[in-house]
Design a protein around this nucleic acid. Structure first.
Lengths: 151, 151
DNA sequence: CAGAATTGTAACCGTTGACATTACATTATG
DNA sequence: CATAATGTAATGTCAACGGTTACAATTCTG
């Protein structure tokens, strides 16, 4: 009876940015390279890069290969990434049961009653996502790596 | 490339409460009756009622039949209902990619970096859900029904 | 107390989306 | 041109959802 979550595409996308920032000095950032760090198939990475590119967050070179970050890190928020990778249907976090009975006064009005409330919840979440940027992620990643005894 | 949302179990559960409040004076509230208003199969309703009962939000009479609301409406929040119907795996809104490469400094640390930030986002959403109660829903439902020309 | 109504659940189905994988056309570069 | 990469289509597996049938367990009523 357990259920669904926001796709791992989102966390994987953040992972990609962290990798690019960490390694772009020393490696060419190919889908192969990113796939190894994330432990997923390169095609998964390419599809994600495609979405991030379409959103203007990443640049990818065909042929020669290599991905890079298209904007200053502090100008990319979690919300930007979340929207880019298209985690929820139509941008709607909540799924409505489709066909309430229109002959029932409640069935006929439930949508109107709930929509505004569900929007409030979704907006609260999105507002928080706007407060967190990739600069925060990179700062903490560097810190973690530096204090990591395995290095 | 479109994706998933929080289960319609959540909105259907709210619908159930609205129905009970609206009709309990005039009808016995059976799973059959609720199924008709929501336009779903009675078994779907029974499963939901089971979850809401387990959470102490609803009382259901076996045999004789009939569901009723177990607590004052203003003491039941969206978060209570959301948790009751178990919409996300382990209560975690975000799904992590499972096996980042532990040989990679980023793969090894990404979880530590993101967990706290994802929790912030989830908490923002849950805080908002705590602010909305079934009393709000019922108030607006009554209002909608009264101003509904179809009545 | 027998019959009717209802709940609780198990079992199974079809559909959908996620993630995985293979394959290959396309593109850039030395 | 040969090489290395990206972009993408096609296909497969798996899990969860919502749907449905079936039926035992429970309660009430005549």
């Amino acid at each position: 009876m357990a259920n669904l979550q926001i796709s791992s595409r989102f966390t994987m996308a953040i992972h990609i940015f962290a990798c690019i920032d960490t390694f772009e000095k020393d490696h060419k950032i190919t889908s192969e390279f990113l796939a190894e760090s994330g432990n997923v198939n390169p095609v998964i990475i390419r599809r994600l890069l495609g979405q991030l590119k379409a959103a203007g967050l990443i640049e990818v070179k065909r042929g020669s290969g290599g991905a890079s970050i298209a904007k200053p890190l502090e100008n990319i928020t979690f919300l930007d990434v979340y929207r880019a990778v298209d985690c929820v249907e139509n941008g709607e976090l909540f799924h409505f049961h489709e066909n309430p009975n229109r002959k029932c006064p409640v069935g006929r009005n439930i949508h109107r009653v709930l929509d505004e409330k569900l929007r409030r919840v979704q907006e609260a979440m999105e507002r928080e996502m706007e407060q967190i940027t990739l600069a925060d992620v990179i700062r903490d990643t560097r810190e973690c790596i530096q204090s990591d005894p395995a290095n």
